[in-house]
Write a protein that binds this DNA or RNA. Structure first.
Lengths: 229, 229
DNA sequence: CGACGGGTTGAAGTAAATCAATAGGGGTGG
DNA sequence: CCACCCCTATTGATTTACTTCAACCCGTCG
């Protein structure tokens, strides 16, 4: 997303987009540090807080009683997590590595919306963008084959790292193969196989297991939707 | 969702939930009637309007260039469609049968949010509920097998029709098998096979192709998550 | 009546899962 | 510093759930 919002000092969705820069922070934002793997909240917890990711990457997921897991989203700095329509959290949110979040009392939301309509608007824009990107992910989950899923995933990460150095983009994969598999509705074996396939085709490099260098982003883009005819 | 909102007469998300009843309608809401199959908007259209479904059922979908389609959601009365974070629509929305929608100018949203913070709050609640239900659908798409997908789909429809007459619930399927398939990431054949399987097991009845009677909702619920061990 | 679209049912094919073994890599302790 | 372990990742062989292909049914409509 990347809306810039000042929220009484507590919230400040990061600004890359053409939105007003944050104004004065009246209060010290209440923030919380998380260790690698630490949970921010679990599915079923009281949804008393909303969080903004400040640093690190979080993982929002749902687990079925038989152990099957689906990763709903990876949450990067500037994104909001824990925003529920009712009183409980509907997914679990954990830090992948060390992370830092801003903590916003849910009970404070109403008054803030009332006092700062521009905040309400930006919050809505944020949720709308989430909605739209989730719709795109539906297509990936429901209608793309394994190789297209992997390519789509890598492309999305590559585009998030706008720092393309002459066509080539390199980025870290903070998440494990298991996380990727559970995000794309695949198994770790299938993820692994398709990554090595992309590597041997010369589309990407894998200098380390969690380091990707896209050698040819256009070929990667082609892979997100191969007319296999 | 089912928030009750008065929106200068134009918007009025239907109320089943504990929200204030609509107040006076100052303007005649601008509404639009749709014929069966008619499109409300296409992916790529300018997102100048947001719509509230008043009557009938709509289908929001995305199509890939090779024809693969994914139905993002079925939109029942009280729901909002066409809410985009930017200037274009990211999915296509069509009426399944005859339908009627309220039309809201997108440009009017800001001022309305400013004037009516309670509307902003309810709109946020609506988007948050969409977000949460989409997360649940991720699990269905990404981690459930065909029979579980079908059971989950039918259960969701059954629970929407709260009019249970002594354990048994009956409802119409306004959408085709093809729509269901594209919603669940399956083929029409698989949908058909699994429906007949549920029928022969005595879980449901199919008096007509688009009429479902749930004979045993608890067994249906079990089917949404079978530990196939 | 015959054509058409949507739905069901059957047989065969295949992409991805599962099962299984091996390889790498980072941290700990000797 | 090296040896070992544990966990993650890779690679291979086999199985399977779902798709694909194909035939047929049935209600509707010109």
């Amino acid at each position: 997303m990347n809306v810039a919002v000042d929220f009484g000092g507590a919230i400040h969705l990061q600004a890359r987009s053409p939105y007003p820069a944050p104004v004065a922070k009246r209060d010290v934002p209440q923030s919380r540090r998380l260790a690698a793997g630490e949970a921010l909240f679990f599915e079923g917890d009281d949804a008393n807080f909303v969080y903004e990711v400040l640093d690190g990457v979080l993982r929002t997921s749902k687990v079925l009683c038989d152990g099957r897991r689906l990763v709903v989203s990876f949450n990067y700095p500037g994104q909001l997590v824990g925003f529920s329509h009712d009183t409980v959290q509907h997914a679990t949110c954990e830090a992948i590595g060390k992370a830092k979040v801003a903590v916003i009392k849910r009970s404070a939301l109403s008054s803030i919306i009332r006092d700062r309509p521009e905040f309400a608007e930006q919050l809505l824009r944020f949720t709308a963008e989430s909605l739209n990107s989730m719709q795109e992910h539906f297509v990936v989950l429901g209608r793309k084959c394994a190789s297209e899923k992997i390519a789509s995933f890598l492309l999305a990460l590559a585009e998030r790292e706008a720092e393309s150095d002459g066509g080539a983009v390199a980025f870290r994969l903070p998440m494990t193969r298991s996380d990727i598999a559970d995000f794309l509705g695949l198994t770790i074996e299938t993820v692994s196989r398709n990554l090595t396939a992309l590597k041997s085709e010369g589309v990407i490099d894998l200098p380390q297991t969690n380091l990707v260098r896209v050698r040819n982003i256009e070929r990667l883009r082609d892979k997100t939707l191969q007319e296999h005819s």
